[in-house]
Amino acid sequence: MTTPTPHTPLRSSLAGDPDMAELVDMFLEELPQRLTVLTTAVDTGDIETLRRLAHQLKGAAGGYGFDPIGKAAGSLEALLKASGDASQSQLSSMAGSIADLKTLCERALLGRTH
């Protein structure tokens, strides 16, 4: 088994489900925009936007067959919740979790079929 690197494409576990193909494509099409929102929220210390984004990805990514993204988003949400009124400085303590989520999203984009 090879260890996934940032360059290993992450494919949806539902890629073979004809009902889901279109939805998975749609999710991937919108993913770059979500990544932009994520980056901006981190840069500006917009905790609420970050929390909402993590919350929504936690709930939805699994539904599109991207369980690892859902799990990473869930971990980030938990960290954000635990820190309460997280400040910009506290955000840096979550840098690892944020980077994990970003990497997984980027790998999912690499796995796009078209």
């Binding site: 009902d19 889901m20 939805l23 749609m26 999710f27 929504q56 709930g59 939805a60 539904g63 599109y64």
Partner: peptide, 15 residues
């Protein structure tokens, strides 16, 4: 639900 994703997924999964 405030997540558009949930609505989409449910539409397909409950079709």
């Amino acid at each position: 639900d405030d997540s558009e994703d949930v609505h989409r997924l449910l539409r397909v999964r409950l079709k």
